[in-house]
Each structure stands twice: as C-alpha cells, then as structure tokens.
Design a binder for these strands. Structure first.
Length: 613
RNA sequence: GCGGGAGUAGUUCAGUUGGUUAGAACGCCGGCCUGUCACGCCGGAGGUCGCGGGUUCAAGUCCCGUCUCUCGCGCCA
C-alpha cells in the first residue's frame, strides 16, 4: 500500500464499500460524541468523513489533535445508513472507519478558522496566506486562475501563436509609470529596470520574423496601489505582424469572449457576455457620452452636451454662463422616471457632488411640459423645450447638470452618471444591469494631449503607436487633432486591455517624438536598440495586452486583485509573510556600491507595532 | 502627498448621554454526550479598548497628536 494514500478525499463512493483505503489530509473538523468521534479529512480534492468507533483506543489520541494537523489514516469504507447520508458532500454516501492513524505534522492552534470563512482582516490573512489559501473560496479562485490561463494558452496556440519569454532584468520601457530598479553589481551606479511590459521585446520579435507572439507576461510598475492595481501583475501580451486594427480585434475578440463564456458561470449562475464583434466607441464619443474612457455599459444612463441651451440669451443662469464664457461646457444626464422620488433623493446627490469638489448638482425635473427644481426658473419654457429635445426628456424625467471646463466636466459627469444610476437602483428604479459582462472597444485615441501643468504637448498613450495618416498627418495637422491607431478593451468599467498598431518607420518615430519635445539624441539613447532594428527591415505590426488578473477578478466577482493571487502584497506593497521589502546588509550595499540616504524616520511606534504583531 | 472608513479577547463584532467588575458569537482549555456533518449541553481561561498626551471626581466613550490597515484622489498614458 502507498505510504500516504490510495484515494483522494473526494474519491470514495458506494462502490468502494468494503475496501481498505488510506487517506491523507488536513483535519478539517472534529465532532466528539463521547463514544464516537467524527473527523472530516480534507485534501485538495474534497472532504471525507472518517469515524473513530466506540471503544477504539484512537479516540483519545485523535481528540487531542488540533484542526489543520496533517494526518494519514488507514481504514475501511462503510456505507452510511440511509438517515445519516449527507447529500451536501460528494463522499456523503460513505464514511471511513479508522483502523490506524499516523500524525504527519501536528498543527498549533490556528490564528483564524480555515473551515469557516469569517471576515478575518486582510493583513492577517496575508500574514498567514498559506492558511488563508486552504479555505474553500481561495482554493476555487486560484483554480479558476489556473483554468483561465490554461484556456488562454490553448486558444492562442489554436490560432498559431508562439509563446515567448522575455527578460526580467532589462531597460526602461516606454510606459510612463515609475520603474522598479535593480542595481548592477558589475556596473556600479547603473541599474536594470524591471519591465513595465515586454513592449520593446515583443516588437523586436516582430522585427525578428516571428509574426505571432504571445506571453503570459509578468509586469512591474512602481506606482501606488488600488483595488485593481498591484506592483506586479500579469498580462496576456500579444503582438502580430502585417495586421490592421481589425485583424487584432478579430483575433482577440473570440479569445476574450470565449474565456468569459467558458468561465462566466463560476459563481454558479451563467452571466451573459457581449457577443462578437464588440461595439467600438471613438474616444471623443465615449468621453462625451460616458465621461470616462472605461465606461461601465451596464449603466444605461448617457450624457449629452447642452451648452447651447445655457448659451441662449433668454437663459439667465449666470453660474453656468460665466463658466461657458471661460470656455466651459454644460453636460446633462437624463435620469428617467425619478419624478416620484422625494426631495431628499436630489439633495443627497447634490451633497455628494459637493463632496466631490463640485459646486453642486443642479437639476430640472419635468412634470408634463413644466420644469421644476431650483434651476428651472432661470430657464424659460422655450429653452426648456430645447433641453427636452436634446436630452430626450419625457414627463417624470429629471436632468442633472455639470458645468466646467470640458475635461473636468466630462470627468465629473462620468462620476455623476454612475452615482445617479446606483442611487436610482437603490430606490427601486432601474439601475445598473447585473448578470452580464459588457465589452466594448475604445478607438481613435488622440496621439497627443496637452499637459495641463506644463502646457506642453505630450503623448497621450503609448508613444510607439502609429499616428493615423502617418508622417503626412504629423507634418500637416495640428498635433492635438491627430489620432492614433490606439485602442482599449473595456468591460464593466474596467480597462482590461490596451494596444495599438505600432509605428515601424524610424522617420515617423523621430517626427512623433520631436512633436512631444524629445530630441533625436534622447530617442537614440532610450530606444536606440529598437530604432536600429527598424532600419533593417521592420514589418508593420500591432498588438495588445490584457490584464489577466483583472479578468480573473471579474470572473470570480471579487472586489480586488488580492483575492485572485496566491501570494500577494498588501496595499502598501509589503509582503507580510515573507517580510519584503527588507533592509540590505552593509556587505550587500558595499557590493553594489550603494550608500543609503534615508528620509527622516517616522514617529516611533509604527515599526515596533508591526514587529509585535 | 491629500481625503473617507476602520482599529475593543486568538478571530469577527457589540458597547446607550462619560458612570459599578468592558460583553456576545466562533475558536481555545476542562467535563459530559453513540450518529454528527454549523453536533449538542455544563464550566473555565483569555483584554496595554492601536499608541501618546489632555479635559474630568470618573474616559473604550470627549479633545489633540500619532501609528497601522483599507477604499479613493494625486500618480499610473
């Protein structure tokens, strides 16, 4: 007989009755009934109820062992009596009567329960991650992650993509985030950068003649965290040669749609997925209609521009008029059917807006043809008619206004759109849709944008993107009007992917960087390797990168990325289990020719407290 | 760097207007129980109320400072 097991803990069925079996696993739970003791034994595959029968000398031994101890039991399988069958358990028809037991690893009292999902605090869970990972939910989430990645690979292989590995110790890539740096011992004073993405390498692979590249690529960015943002994360990184934007979309849509169709029932209920082709929304439209370049299309509300109404001579609302004079715009959100809501519904939204830094959230509520509300008296009936026309308002609808400079107005309108939608949902009106994954492409991003602080022109997205219209557009058009073949893939308000058709011509590259104020020397110094490659025959190419963790997070219906990683840092980017980051020894620093110049220490208590915990 | 929320037993939380000895559930320890599978019953241990200062006859509760976690803003295109 095997040293540890003849079966897994999820295996045994009625067919096995009468067999002598060996199982190994963790003590999940014990139930002591005096004469008889039940032990739920758990492994990766399931749970089996084991019984120490009346009179067995093992009762006292096993009863003393703590939960989560690892044991091996040998016993014989018996059918349960009809009234004791447990239909909730896959192995619930049988139980194993223990004849022998071996303690493999005795557990101390555990700091929180594994068998039950209490709401243990996150820092605690991360410190004892190996215990946390034993819990049912985490086992399922990590398994989902495995399955999603396997399915991605199969789908990419099926389309003839080759998988590559690219360097981790490398140079800075063109993404704009802060790099993680690794000091070089052999080259004092010089540093490697960890890749923010394998951007240049995948383009170089195109120039190396590999045509279809993909990688489940680790990426590193040293910026502050968010629920959906970590220092290190994984991308489905893709690049293709001789392709247009349509080719990229046609390649990735079935992969992404397929993944979501395959796993969208993870939480037990099938969710609908946007069928291919995904809708495409130009950047300008999405900023106007949704106030964000990552719109949640489950929210049915849309934004319209009503500047024209408040510009009219017969409208005397100076709060808006003065902003319009300074170049501002007025955006309106139609909220259908809120006429029955109490005054507090509108007051709450107003104070929410003030909390977001806006002066308020003005509105007009229409009953019949008559506008009501604090602003209505400034808008005469003809202007109200124009407003109803533009926003498509009917009796019982309200319209909320945001007035500011265009960029700020769009942003605030986007926030208000979501807030109004959720408040409507909370008050029994149709709110955000549920049970669906709503995808779209955002296309036609501007190549450049104006930096508000410096008033300088800079790349708005990836500087390696191909400007629409090529060199001629860069030479003849206002740079702020030039679009790029740049695209994002958005799902339920999350930016899942970003990509572009790349610039493969050195002249265009020089011109494009020149417009953003980067000289030829900078370009050569930063990206000389790739620029050189372009001079020896570079195919037109393009690609995209999907955030794998975000996809798994959406499929697992989790509120943050930490729930879909096995080992992960906290919000401050500390690994509480491994104690990282940690100090370097003087010898290590000497090796690296580094001297520390630390900021003043914080008030004592912080570090001390952590050590005690 | 800024803002919101949180910090009380091992864990999750309650704690009224400032007022006696700070409670509950789960866990843990001891006892009982032959069929449970969220087992049940009896008993017990366990607290720097994050830390420091202040107000007060009296502070978990009020005030000030500070630390930590978390969500968001900035940042990340």
């Amino acid at each position: 007989m095997h040293a540890y097991r003849t079966h897994k803990c999820g295996d045994l069925r009625k067919d096995n009755v009468g067999e002598t079996v060996k199982l190994s696993g963790w003590i999940h739970k014990k139930r002591d009934h005096g004469g008889v003791l039940f032990v739920d034994l758990r492994d990766t595959y399931g749970l089996t109820q084991c019984v120490v029968d009346e009179g067995s000398p093992l009762i006292d031994t096993i009863d003393k062992w703590h939960s989560e101890s690892v044991i091996t039991i040998t016993g014989h399988v018996k059918a349960r009596a009809d009234e004791t069958v447990n239909t909730k358990l896959a192995t619930g028809d049988i139980e194993v009567y223990i004849d022998e037991v071996v303690m493999q690893s005795e557990a101390d009292v555990i700091p929180f329960q594994v068998a039950e999902d209490d709401g243990t605090g996150e820092d605690h869970r991360l410190k004892y991650r190996y215990l946390d990972l034993r819990r049912e939910k985490m086992q399922k989430n990590i398994r989902l992650r495995n399955n999603v990645i396997r399915s991605i690979r199969e789908r990419m292989y099926a389309q003839d993509f080759q998988e590559f590995q690219t360097p981790i110790l490398t140079a800075s890539s063109p993404e704009g985030a802060r790099d993680y740096l690794v000091p070089s011992r052999l080259h004092p004073g010089k540093f490697y950068a960890l890749p923010q993405a394998p951007q240049q390498f995948k383009q170089l692979l195109m120039m190396s003649g590999f045509d279809k590249y993909f990688q489940i690529a680790p990426c590193f960015r040293d910026e502050d965290g968010r629920a959906d943002r970590l220092a290190e994360f994984y991308q489905l990184d893709v690049e293709m040669s001789f392709v247009t934007q349509d080719d990229v979309f046609n390649t990735l849509e079935p992969v992404i749609n397929g993944i979501f169709e395959e796993f969208s029932d993870f939480k037990g209920k099938k969710q609908s997925v946007t069928p291919t082709p995904f809708p495409r929304i130009p950047y300008r439209d999405v900023m106007l209609k949704y106030g964000s370049d990552k719109p949640d299309l489950r929210n049915p509300l849309e934004i319209v521009d009503v500047t024209a109404v408040f510009e009219r001579d017969d409208v005397e609302f100076n709060a808006f008029k003065n902003v319009i004079k300074k170049g501002g715009v007025v955006r309106a959100i139609k909220a259908p059917g809120v006429g029955g809501q109490p005054r507090s519904f509108f007051d709450k939204l107003n104070s929410w807006a003030q909390g977001e830094g806006a002066p308020g959230l003005g509105y007009i509520l229409f009953e019949g043809n008559e506008g009501k509300g604090p602003i209505a008296k400034f808008v005469p009936s003809e202007a109200q008619a124009q407003l109803r026309e533009i926003a498509g308002l009917e009796s019982g609808d309200a319209v909320f206004f945001i007035c500011n400079l265009e960029k700020k107005a769009a942003h605030m309108a986007g926030l208000a759109r979501d807030k109004i939608c959720d408040d409507m949902g909370a008050n029994g009106l149709p709110g955000r849709e549920t049970g669906c994954y709503k995808f779209c492409w955002i296309v036609d991003y501007p190549m450049y944008e104006l930096d508000e602080k410096t008033a300088k022109i800079d790349f708005s997205h990836n500087p390696f993107s191909m400007p629409q219209g090529g060199l001629e557009a860069l030479n003849t058009e206002d740079p702020l009007e030039v679009m790029a073949d740049q695209y994002d893939c958005v799902c339920n308000g999350f930016e899942l992917a970003s990509g572009a058709i790349r610039n493969h011509q050195p002249e265009i590259m020089e011109k494009a960087f020149g417009i953003a104020g980067y000289g030829k020397d900078t370009l050569e110094k930063e990206f000389g390797g790739m620029l050189n490659a372009m001079r020896y025959g570079a195919p037109p190419h393009g690609g995209i990168a999907y955030g794998i963790d975000r996809m798994v997070m959406l499929l697992a219906d989790e509120p943050n990325l930490r729930e879909v990683y096995a080992f992960v840092m906290n919000g401050q980017y500390e690994d509480l289990m491994m104690n990282a980051p940690s100090e370097a020894t003087p010898d290590q620093l000497k090796d690296l020719s580094l001297k520390l110049n630390l900021p003043k220490p914080k008030v004592e208590g912080g570090e001390e407290e952590k050590k005690r915990a």
